[in-house]
Design a protein around this nucleic acid. Structure first.
Length: 569
RNA sequence: GCCUAAGUAGCUCAGCCUGGAUAGAGCAUCAGGUUCCUAACCUGAGGGUCGAAGGUUCAAAUCCUUCCUUGGGCGCCA
């Protein structure tokens, strides 16, 4: 479609002795602020100095050179001040778009840009023995969405999770339980497990000398010497992992590969020796470090003074294992922005070790989810647990559903309430750009109007309801498209934009583009729904296929966000 | 101090990469709309020194410079 405009323009410009290549013309072409002004616009400002005329005059003259254009290509070409505005043959455009969507279905918008490439995407990285709070939903949703976007662009994605099941935080938990909570029965509940950790932090903060006892536990934990401690660790670790798995199921995420920090405790010492031998690492203040100052990456500590392992060393081993075992073309880490430096240090180290080049690894940082005025933290307990929050949201949703339709069975109710709640929370995490902090307010999270997940699901269900009714009626009006309205055109155009959006999201590794697109698409549909009756209208046949296309593309789009649709709501 | 991200309506954000036509949404506020395909909807109103100052340009929220504010990071947490 754009090509038509470019061709016509090039001809007209040549008549004025201005030679521009296709690419140059495309660079100047823009989309007007509203569809009433046309579909493409060509601003003439830049020609003013060359032709020594006002841009308005140039626009008029170019319009004259365009003479009569083909009616199969354009409805009209107009000038508006310094702009030349092109109106495509909208009927042809709309019919073509609808036809494409309905024939390609769930493949509509796919791209082969990364075809056949294996990509490992590591995300979520939840720790055991700690709270999984609503903030963790961000990274999990982001990783899942990126995985889907990559798949939609042809990649073979390996979803990986790296769970922190050992290390100082676990040592703190074990220490606190053994010392202060031993008489309590070990519970499976995430909230209980999280509370022990919070208690540990509280006690350690008020009595700094206690840290020594934790360090001892950490030593024992690292080398697995103490059998009692080991079995306590094993049991509580499993409880944590079980509750995490339940959460992933809710969130519609399934990992292909799990890595655990505990796997890397022992091999860590060997790799540190290697690095020392190769002079990549050195000893400083009794600890083992890699000095990366000449790359502006500071100092990276591999081993503590007491020879216990830090996450840096484990991450080196993890990276090596990923490449050896799964041979991805690219390894991507979806991590909190606070870890940016750490990952750059890791990538640089892999380069120095000559195992991987910079281009083989990449990371997608995302900002925090905060409570109003403060940080959300598993350490202090200043957080909203996912498990508590989702129950509250489901309860709220259930009440709304019951009010709407009192005859729903318990199963229907539970199923819909969960899907709507998850859509609400995931969408709220994905709609904002990744490097902006999200302020989590419960009352906003329970608002299901406007730019929200439930609004999108509702729009989808409405479309479905029209189609269901259409399929039930007998005298179907198959009349062809007589007149195309402004709203119908705008909706079709937005549907057509989907492929472009997918590519933009892929290139920038940013699902919020898809989220914003989904919302704009649904908005246009709801406008259409309000002003254009479908069943029984003169354009019934066309409108049904437009609704059907909308439903398909919204589903494709939500699918990329990892949000499931509902046929009825 | 250095690095990094953000600063746009009362609040939460799009737009910035690739400069163009009256700076867009949602929430909140106010005023309307359901005998009609689901009102979790739609229509309308009010609300803006686009953090500040310079610069580049015919044209700057968008590009450049400096500064201010806030979040995050900067050797033994992850």
């Amino acid at each position: 479609m754009k090509k038509l405009v470019i061709d016509v323009l090039r001809e007209a410009l040549e008549k004025k002795d201005i030679k521009l290549t296709e690419n140059e013309i495309e660079k100047y072409l823009e989309v007007p602020p509203s569809t009433e002004m046309g579909d493409y616009a060509f601003p003439c400002f830049f020609l003013a100095p060359k032709l020594k005329k006002s841009p308005e005059q140039i626009a008029l003259e170019l319009r004259e050179h365009l003479g009569k254009f083909s009616k199969t290509d354009f409805d009209d070409i107009q000038t508006s001040g310094p702009y030349l505005n092109f109106f495509l043959n909208r009927k042809a455009f709309v019919l073509k778009t609808v036809r494409e969507v309905l024939s390609q279905k769930d493949r509509y918008g796919r791209s082969g840009i990364n075809k056949g490439k294996r990509v490992m995407i590591e995300f979520s990285q939840a720790n055991t023995h700690k709270a999984f709070h609503v903030g963790h939903i961000r990274g999990t949703s982001l990783g899942e969405s990126l995985s889907r976007i990559f798949e939609f662009c042809g990649s073979k994605v390996i979803r990986a999770n790296y769970q922190g099941d050992t290390g100082m935080h676990v040592a703190k938990w074990l220490w606190c339980y053994e010392k202060y909570h031993k008489r309590e029965k070990i519970k499976r509940e995430e909230s209980w497990i999280a509370s022990i950790y919070v208690d540990a932090i509280k006690r350690l903060t008020s009595h700094e000398t206690l840290q020594k006892q934790v360090d001892e536990i950490n030593q024992k934990l690292t080398y697995g010497e103490d059998r009692h401690l080991y079995s306590l660790w094993k049991k509580t670790r499993q409880y944590s992992l079980d509750s995490l798995e339940k959460i992933y199921k809710d969130l519609n995420t399934k990992f292909d590969v799990y890595f655990f920090e505990s796997e890397f405790d022992k091999p860590a010492l060997k790799i540190v020796d290697d690095l020392l031998e190769k002079k990549i690492a050195k000893i400083s203040d009794g600890a083992v470090i890699i000095d990366l100052k000449k790359y502006d990456l500071g100092v990276w500590v591999l081993l503590r003074k007491d020879k216990t392992v830090l996450y840096s060393t484990k991450d080196i081993l993890l990276a090596l294992k990923k490449f050896q075992k799964y041979k991805p073309h690219k390894s991507i880490y979806v991590v909190g922005a606070a870890q940016s430096l750490h990952l750059q240090q890791l990538f640089k180290t892999l380069e120095l070790m000559k195992v991987k080049e910079r281009g083989d690894c990449d990371f997608v940082p995302f900002a925090e989810v905060r409570l109003p005025g403060k940080k959300m933290s598993s350490r202090t307990g200043d957080n909203v647990l996912y498990s508590d929050f989702i129950l509250e949201t489901i309860d709220f949703t259930r009440k709304r559903l019951r009010k709407k339709d009192g005859k729903l069975s318990k199963k229907q109710l539970d199923d819909r309430a969960l899907k709507i709640s998850v859509a609400a929370v995931k969408y709220s995490m994905l709609k904002q750009g990744p490097n902006k902090n999200i302020i989590f307010k419960k009352q906003d999270a329970l608002n299901f109007e406007g730019d929200t997940g439930p609004y999108l699901l509702y729009s989808y269900a409405r479309a479905n309801s029209i189609l269901k009714k259409f399929n039930r009626i007998k005298n179907k009006n198959k009349a062809e498209l007589k007149e195309l309205g402004q709203i119908e055109f705008a909706l079709a155009k937005k549907i057509h934009d989907f492929s472009e959006m997918v590519l933009a999201a892929y290139n920038s590794k940013n699902p919020s583009l898809i989220a914003n697109y989904s919302y704009q698409l649904a908005q246009l549909f709801n406008e259409f729904y309000h002003f254009c009756p479908v069943i029984g209208s003169e354009n019934e046949g066309f409108r049904v296929s437009l609704v059907s296309s909308f439903k398909q593309v919204l589903q494709n789009s939500l699918n990329l966000l990892g949000i499931e649709t509902l046929e009825v709501m």
